[in-house]
Design a protein around this nucleic acid. Sequence first.
DNA 1: TGCCAATGTTAACGTTGTCAACACATCTTT
DNA 2: AAAGATGTGTTGACAACGTTAACATTGGCA
Lengths: 213, 213
Amino acid sequence: MAAKRRPKITRAYHHGDLKDALVRSGLDLLRTEGLAALTLRGVARAAGVSQAAPYRHFADHRALVGAVAEQGFMLLQEAMLVAVRRDTGRMGFKGIAIAYVTFGLENPALYRIMFGAEITREADLPDLRRTGSGVLGFVRQGIEELQRQSLIGPGDAGVMATALWSMLHGLVALALDGQTEGSGLSVAELLAETTRIMMFGMAPRGVTPDVIA
Amino acid sequence: MAAKRRPKITRAYHHGDLKDALVRSGLDLLRTEGLAALTLRGVARAAGVSQAAPYRHFADHRALVGAVAEQGFMLLQEAMLVAVRRDTGRMGFKGIAIAYVTFGLENPALYRIMFGAEITREADLPDLRRTGSGVLGFVRQGIEELQRQSLIGPGDAGVMATALWSMLHGLVALALDGQTEGSGLSVAELLAETTRIMMFGMAPRGVTPDVIA
DNA sequence: TGCCAATGTTAACGTTGTCAACACATCTTT
DNA sequence: AAAGATGTGTTGACAACGTTAACATTGGCA
């Protein structure tokens, strides 16, 4: 039909790559305007399409949030991967931990989405599920590597990884809530201290598990 | 001087104790219908008043959420207090930890609100701020008690408390997201394992901090 | 070529947060 | 006790959002 529009790039009626564009818009809105801006209408606007267009790609708001969160998990994993590669040869766990926490602090809205209520459970959003547990797998690999180097004692690496992840996530979450300020330390210092505790414990020499029973 | 008005029986026009009633309704809605149900109009409906009535007591939606969250922190603190009293004489930290996690798992929507994005920072909601840091104080007291008993080594109790809180919060948060399932352990087992790690560390005997540098 | 499924648009509905204008109730002051 | 004054609740409205139905356009395929 009549070329009502001669686009410089191949975008007229059919966008061609709308789903990705919407997710990208979502990440952008999250970064620039915060959590509340991640709306279906918002991403549609940002992508220059009509309000109902996203429904061709996302069943509902949850699905959009899920897709954005999934992207977030990928970015997080990539950040950790970069950290690992950077200090190759070294133990690397410290680097992973710092990368994790840094990612959370630098992308507060995105991080919140990734662990937000909207995503919870329900078993739909299977992709997200998989990507999310990828983080756990990553930490677990780090643990196993350390075990191989005998820097960490024997034990179920999965459990240890979950414990470590709990610590990291908890620290980020509390920091994002401004709830670490009472300690008087920076998040970086807190991370160092907490990591040390996870490595060597808080109990003084001589106190063994059986003392506490 | 406006002496504290005594909450009378619910009157026709003036409710008498609407603010509390709204917060109670909020807790109720949270428990029965979940996060999305905690709306200004919803609590108004539940309290039997008009849609705009809450605005006489809460500046906006955030303020309502803040008030509900504050109540949540009080309930959490109370749950921990009960746990402490129950196993009086014993070290008690285990009890506190279990009480904390149990509270989170049994009140998922409320717990999420308490650490939700809506509340973050901003320094308004000063009451909430205070109540929230009460939790930290509580954990800190536990630490100090354990230090007195020499079951925990010397060190800044505030930092240790923050580390412990991070661990507890992280575990609850991951569990609420269903992200602990990969470990194959129950949350209770994970808590026990994680607590053990925080006490005695993951490093095998012989590996000291200077090995890792 | 002609048709169809995928993709995008417009228009509407119900719900929510929020505000302004108003009504009633309780307290204070005279 | 009468008359404000001030707090508290109501009604009605608006914009934004999620969601759906009905319609339009396109690209690919038979």
